Computed example of a mutant assay.
Amino acid sequence: MLVFNCTKAAAEFFSVTRKGEVLSCLEAAPHKTIAESVEMPVFPADVEPHEHDGTQWHWVVHCVTVKRKKYLLVMDYVSRYCITFLATKKGDEINFLNTFEQMLKSNVEFLAELAGIDSVEVELALEQYDNKYNTCAFHARGDRSVQGHLNDVAWHLERQCFEEGMLLEPYDWTAFSAFVGQIPRNAKGRGKHFFPNKAFMDVWLQDIGVNNAVDDLSNIVFLSDYRK
Rank of each mutant, 00 (worst) to 15 (best):
M1S: 09
M1G: 05
M1T: 05
V3W: 06
C6W: 01
K8S: 14
A10W: 03
F13K: 00
F14P: 00
S15L: 08
G20D: 07
L23Q: 13
C25P: 14
E27Q: 15
P30Y: 02
H31W: 08
H31T: 10
A35N: 07
S37H: 05
S37I: 02
V38S: 04
V38D: 07
V38G: 03
E39N: 10
M40R: 13
D46K: 14
V47P: 02
H50G: 02
D53A: 12
Q56P: 00
Q56V: 01
H58D: 04
V60Y: 01
H62G: 01
V64G: 00
Y71E: 02
M75I: 07
C82S: 09
I83P: 03
L86S: 01
A87V: 00
A87C: 05
K89N: 08
K89G: 03
E93L: 08
L97G: 15
T99I: 10
T99C: 14
Q102Y: 13
S106N: 10
V108L: 09
E109T: 12
F110M: 13
L111F: 02
E113L: 12
A115F: 06
A115E: 08
D118N: 15
V120F: 13
V120N: 10
L126Q: 07
E127C: 09
E127G: 11
E127P: 01
Q128K: 14
Q128T: 14
N134Y: 12
T135Y: 12
T135L: 10
A137I: 08
R144A: 15
S145R: 13
V146W: 03
G148Y: 12
G148F: 12
L150C: 02
N151V: 01
N151Y: 00
D152K: 11
D152R: 11
V153Y: 01
L157R: 00
F162M: 14
E163S: 09
M166Y: 04
P170A: 11
D172W: 05
W173K: 00
F179Y: 13
G181A: 04
Q182R: 04
I183M: 07
R185P: 03
G189E: 06
G189Y: 07
G191F: 09
F194K: 03
K198I: 13
W204Y: 07
L205T: 15
V214K: 00
V214Y: 01
D215Q: 15
D216M: 04
D216G: 04
I220E: 02
S224T: 13
R227A: 05
K228T: 06
